[in-house]
């Protein structure tokens, strides 16, 4: 594995002011490094600041202290080199699937032929061929998430941040989407930071799992997962790792 560090968070802390005037520490002294083309899964209980952390890395929110660099540059605002797939999809409802997927390159002035060719490639890759001219409100939750993934891939970011992208899906669809995402990632290697609260999903996808503590959250432990891909969630090795981590994992909040 290539060991060039692409995402680097150093001693991130985040405090929100609360209504009664006291401070609420969400993240405390959180540090993490993600290497080039590595798939890192961040797992932690709900409301422990995972989305906040993703927003900080994406430049959508400011850390109270600490610094984030992506590709060696300090992150201060949203940047097309940092692609985000959100839990609540955040597709543009007035645009078609194609309109959503080509949004990034179009905003950056890429020619129609070249951007649509790439958009089509990723629409095909996520299995939405034939749905190019549909609006998001006609699509199921799983399909909307596929659009979100294609949209980010088409923008060719340096890193991908995925914040519980399958959290709203039913178990069946979720499992399917995990398989597809893993397949896409193997075809198109990217540096990925993936957030979840589902351990099985984490082990299925990750090169490395980072376990978060409860609020104020910080890194509790890391696990390298070196099972061969694609993984079989019913295999003995898989279940063994799962048991080992779950001893350490408290997903209640």
């Amino acid at each position: 594995m290539n060991n060039e560090v692409v995402i680097k968070c150093e001693n991130i802390s985040k405090t929100f002011p609360t209504a009664d005037g006291t401070a609420f520490d969400v993240i405390a002294d959180f540090s993490i490094e993600v290497n080039k083309n590595e798939f890192v899964v961040l797992i932690g209980p709900g409301q422990c600041g995972k989305t906040t952390l993703i927003n900080i890395i994406a430049g959508l929110e400011e850390a109270t202290s600490g610094i984030v660099t992506v590709g060696g540059e300090l992150v201060t605002e949203p940047d097309p080199k940092i692609g985000v797939v959100y839990q609540e999809t955040n597709l543009f409802p007035w645009l078609t699937v194609m309109g959503n997927v080509e949004f990034g390159p179009k905003a950056q002035g890429e020619s129609k032929a070249s951007r649509q060719e790439r958009a089509q490639k990723y629409i095909d890759l996520v299995g939405l061929t034939g749905f190019e001219n549909q609006h998001p409100n006609k699509l199921s939750g799983g399909m909307q998430q596929r659009v979100g993934i294609a949209r980010v891939y088409t923008n060719e970011p340096l890193v991908l941040l995925l914040d519980e992208p399958f959290g709203h899906l039913d178990a069946q669809t979720r499992y399917l989407m995990e398989e597809e995402l893993e397949k896409i990632w193997r075809q198109e290697r990217r540096t990925v930071l993936f957030v979840t609260n589902n351990l099985e999903e984490a082990i299925f996808l990750a090169d490395r799992i980072v376990l978060m503590t409860n609020c104020p959250s910080t890194v509790k432990q890391e696990y390298i997962i070196d099972l061969p891909r694609p993984r079989d969630i019913t295999s003995r090795e898989f279940l063994k790792i799962r048991e080992e981590i779950s001893k350490n994992l408290d997903l209640t909040s």
Binding site: A58, P78, G83, N90, F92, Q108, R151, V152
Partner: peptide, 12 residues
């Protein structure tokens, strides 16, 4: 959130 998504995709 949509504004954030657009900025993430490189909109000015």
């Amino acid at each position: 959130k949509l504004k954030g998504a657009a900025r993430m995709l490189g909109a000015s």
